[in-house]
Simulated assay, not measured.
Amino acid sequence: MKQNFTVRQGALDGVEAFLSVARHRNFRKAAAELGVTPSAISQAVRLLEARIGAALFIRTTRSVGLTEAGERFLSRAKPAFEELVAAREVARDLGQRPTGLLRLSVPRAIVPLLLEPLLASFHEAYPEVEVEISVSKEVVDLAAEGFDAGIRMGQLIDADMVAVPLTPPFRLVVVGSPAYFARHPPPRETGDLRQHACLRWRRSSGAIAPWSFQSMDQTTEIVVAGPLIASDFPTMLGAAIEGIGLAQLPEPMVADAITTGRLIQVLDPVAPTLPGVFLCYPGRHQVMPKLRAFIDHVKDQRTREAK
């Protein structure tokens, strides 16, 4: 049968006093070391002995010695207490300066576009922070999975998250390769997409995302069909460049391919605008210095790019 083991409230009370007395073999010196009165030290040790159920010290008017129970308690309590002190110092260090492991949950498409430039400059500024990038198509629970922060599209961020913009709003644009358009006339309106091979994106929920379009203030979603379904944007981008079909992708992702002529943009007047990409983290948690440093670095980089 499974047993539950817990540390009783106050179980560690008096241990530091005991260790100090054992070290000095003197109650007054222990009191001076800990900055309390000798009577407070005596009281703490008596309460500890009462909880343990055994005398730990042999006291005389001239000296203080350890009983056998005290010797055994000292041999186990001293290294354990030193480990607790060390653990406290490590935790305190993490809470006072940028150091430690910063875990980020990131979509794969974001890594080359946004993170690689940021990580190089961040590492140079904060060499004591290790950054772990977990690439996933799933929208994970950041707190439950032990992540400090995540990078997400604005429309996928929960209301209880704090969001820091990484990019300005951008459009979703429809693109195809010159080879594809050599075989198919470019669509002039959204209804023409029924005659085209359209590359589709499967969301982490399992549903296939429709294509979205915006005319004035009205947003329209269209169910398209085609030869390929992918769970990430880079795969769709590569397929579009190879001429497999049309793809609807974030404009920053396809900008270089459009500039170099590998892709051609169509249906530009009805391209919808998305909020952008954000660094997000649980707002109910204290922001550790390592995450605060990364947030400030992101903001600083955005300010420089805007100038």
Rank of each mutant, 00 (worst) to 15 (best):
R302Q: 01
R200Q: 15
L94C: 06
F57M: 10
H184V: 09
G35W: 03
F18R: 04
R62K: 13
R183T: 09
P272H: 09
R292I: 00
E33K: 14
L113N: 03
L66V: 06
F122L: 11
T167N: 05
A257G: 02
V131K: 01
A11G: 04
E221G: 02
L279W: 12
R8N: 10
R76W: 14
A120W: 08
S136V: 15
L267M: 04
I222Y: 05
L228N: 02
R194Y: 10
A17L: 10
S177D: 12
C198H: 04
V174P: 00
P168N: 11
R262V: 05
L115D: 03
R188V: 13
A239I: 09
A255M: 07
T167H: 05
D192H: 12
M236S: 04
R8D: 10
A44Q: 13
R28M: 12
E89T: 09
R202M: 09
G176T: 09
A109M: 12
I241T: 05
Q286E: 07
A293I: 08
D192T: 06
R51D: 00
L263Y: 03
A125F: 05
A182G: 12
G65I: 06
I58L: 12
W201A: 04
D192K: 06
Y126M: 11
P252Q: 04
L56H: 09
R23S: 11
A182M: 06
K29F: 04
T190K: 12
H297R: 09
E33I: 01
G283K: 01
W211C: 00
R108D: 10
V173D: 00
A230I: 07
A120P: 00
E89V: 08
F122I: 11
N26Y: 02
L228E: 08
V15R: 07
L267D: 00
G95Y: 05
G243E: 02
I58N: 08
E71R: 15
R188I: 11
A22E: 03
A163Y: 10
R284M: 02
V111C: 07
T235I: 10
E305W: 02
S204G: 11
T235S: 14
R23W: 13
F147K: 03
T67F: 12
M1R: 13
V223T: 15
I244R: 11
A257K: 12
C198K: 01
H24K: 11
V254I: 06
E124A: 14
L104F: 14
A293L: 11
K307A: 06
R59H: 03
D256E: 14
R8M: 08
A293F: 07
L114F: 15
E251Y: 08
G10L: 08
V223G: 11
P289R: 09
E242D: 13
E145L: 15
D148K: 05
I208W: 03
V174L: 15
Q265I: 00
A91T: 07
Q3V: 14
D158E: 14
G70E: 09
Q195H: 09
L12S: 04
H297G: 06
D148T: 10
G226M: 11
K137C: 05
A54G: 04
G95H: 14
A31Y: 01
L199I: 15
